[in-house]
C-alpha cells in the first residue's frame, strides 16, 4: 500500500494483509531514475526503487491510491508499462466533497472489490465486509485515543510513533493491544511542545533529533498519522460505510481539502495542544503541501506558533544541517 488513504477493511475482508510503504525511507532511489525523473518526490522514487530491488517479491498486489501527481505517475507506470510485473490497483480518491464524493468513492471501492474477487476467485459477503469495516473502526477509535492522549503519554517521540504507526501494518486487534500498552504509559511528561506537520515523520533521524533536543510532539498533522483520524461510517452498506470513514478525516492536502479549512484546523490543533512551534517536514517537490505552506506558516506565526520548514528526502538520512535548524528554532522560542 502506498500513501495515503485506502480502505483497510476491504483488503482484510478479501484476505489480504495490507502493509503500507511510505518510501520506504533509506532506500537507494538511484535505480528508479531510469523511470522517474529526480525532480519528482522521493516517496514514489523510493517505492519504485524498492520494487526494482525485489522488495515487493512476496507481494500479491500493489495498491497506489491517487494522492498526488507523483503517485499518479508511479501508479501509471506500474499499471501500463511495468518494469517488473506486479498487479497494481490505482483507486482514485475524490477531491470533491459531500454526497457526490461519498457515492463516487463507494463505487470505486466496490470496483476494487470486484477486481480483488476476480483475482482470488472468492469474494467476501456483505456481512464479511461490514464486519471488517467495524473491526477497522474499532482500531481507528484506538488510534484516535492514542493521538488524543499524547500530551499525557510519557513515551519518547520515537517510541510513540513506533506505536501509532504500527497501524500501517498490524491487524486491527493487534493494533488495539499495542495502543492499550502505549496508553498505559502515562507519567510525568516534559519537553518543548511542538506540532509536527507534513507527509511522514521520516527520515527516522528526525524523531531522534527531536528526542535529543527535548522536544515533545504533542500534536500531529502528518498525512500518515494525524490526517487519518477517521471517524466511523454510519451506513450499513459496507462500501459506502468505508467511503464515509475515509472522507471523514481532518483537512488534508492530498484529499483536496479547502486551504482555509486546513489552516483553521492546524492553527486550532496547535492552540488546543499548547504547541509552541510547528515543524513542517515536507518531502521536496511535494506539490500538495508546498502550495499550502506559505499560507499555513503565516497563519501559525500570526497565532504565535514559530514555524520551521524542513525539506525531507526519504532516500537520504536526516542531515546535520537540519538538526542545527531544529536547534536554532528551539533557541529562538520565547
Amino acid at each position: 500500500m502506498l500513501p495515503v488513504h485506502h480502505p483497510r477493511a476491504l483488503w482484510r475482508a478479501h484476505g489480504y494483509l495490507p502493509v503500507e510503504v511510505w518510501g520506504p525511507p533509506g532506500t537507494d532511489a538511484t535505480p528508479a531514475g531510469a523511470h522517474l525523473q529526480p525532480f519528482l518526490c522521493s516517496i514514489p522514487r523510493c517505492g519504485l526503487a524498492f520494487h526494482l530491488a525485489g522488495g515487493l517479491r512476496d507481494v500479491d498486489v500493489v495498491v497506489v491510491p491517487h494522492a498526488c501527481d507523483a503517485l499518479q505517475g508511479l501508479g501509471s507506470i506500474l499499471t501500463d508499462l511495468p518494469p517488473r510485473p506486479l498487479p497494481a490497483l490505482t483507486p482514485y480518491l475524490p477531491r470533491a466533497t459531500g454526497e457526490v464524493a461519498v457515492a463516487f468513492l463507494a463505487a470505486e471501492i466496490a470496483t476494487l472489490s470486484t477486481r480483488l474477487a476476480e483475482g482470488s476467485q472468492r469474494g467476501p459477503t456483505a456481512d464479511d465486509l461490514l464486519a471488517a469495516a467495524l473491526d477497522e473502526e474499532a482500531a481507528d477509535a484506538a488510534f484516535r485515543a492514542l493521538l488524543d492522549a499524547r500530551p499525557r503519554i510519557s513515551l519518547s517521540n520515537a517510541a510513540f510513533y513506533e506505536a501509532v504507526r504500527s497501524r500501517e501494518y498490524l491487524p486491527p486487534a493487534e493494533f488495539r493491544a499495542v495502543a492499550e500498552v502505549a496508553l498505559a504509559a502515562t507519567g510525568p511528561v516534559d519537553g518543548i511542545p511542538v506540532l509536527l506537520s507534513g507527509i511522514v515523520p521520516e527520515p527516522a533521524g528526525l524523531l531522534a533529533c527531536l528526542d535529543r533536543h527535548g522536544v515533545r510532539v504533542v500534536a500531529d498533522d502528518t498525512a500518515c498519522v494525524g490526517r487519518r483520524r477517521y471517524a466511523p461510517g454510519t451506513s450499513t452498506e459496507p462500501f459506502r460505510r468505508m467511503a464515509e470513514a475515509l472522507g471523514s478525516g481532518p483537512p488534508d492536502t492530498t484529499r483536496g481539502s479547502p486551504l482555509s479549512e486546513r489552516v483553521a484546523y492546524v492553527v486550532a490543533l496547535a492552540a488546543q495542544t499548547g504547541a509552541r512551534a510547528a515543524l513542517l517536514a515536507i518531502p521536496g517537490s511535494c506539490d500538495p503541501e508546498l502550495f499550502a505552506l506559505p499560507v499555513l506558516r503565516q497563519a501559525l506565526e500570526a497565532a504565535g506558533v514559530r514555524t520551521l520548514h524542513l525539506e525531507t528526502d526519504l532516500s537520504m538520512p536526516f542531515t546535520a544541517q537540519a538538526d542545527t535548524r531544529v536547534e536554532a528554532l528551539l533557541e529562538s522560542l520565547p
Binding site: 499518479q72 501509471s76 457515492a103 463516487f104 463505487a107 470505486e108 470496483t111
Partner: peptide
C-alpha cells in the same frame, strides 16, 4: 468551483461520469 476528474486507464467507468 471544483470539477474533479478521476484519472483514467481507459474509458471512464459510469460512476466517474456521474461524479
Amino acid at each position: 468551483a471544483l470539477v474533479d476528474t478521476p484519472f483514467l486507464y481507459g474509458t471512464a467507468p459510469p460512476h466517474a461520469l456521474t461524479y
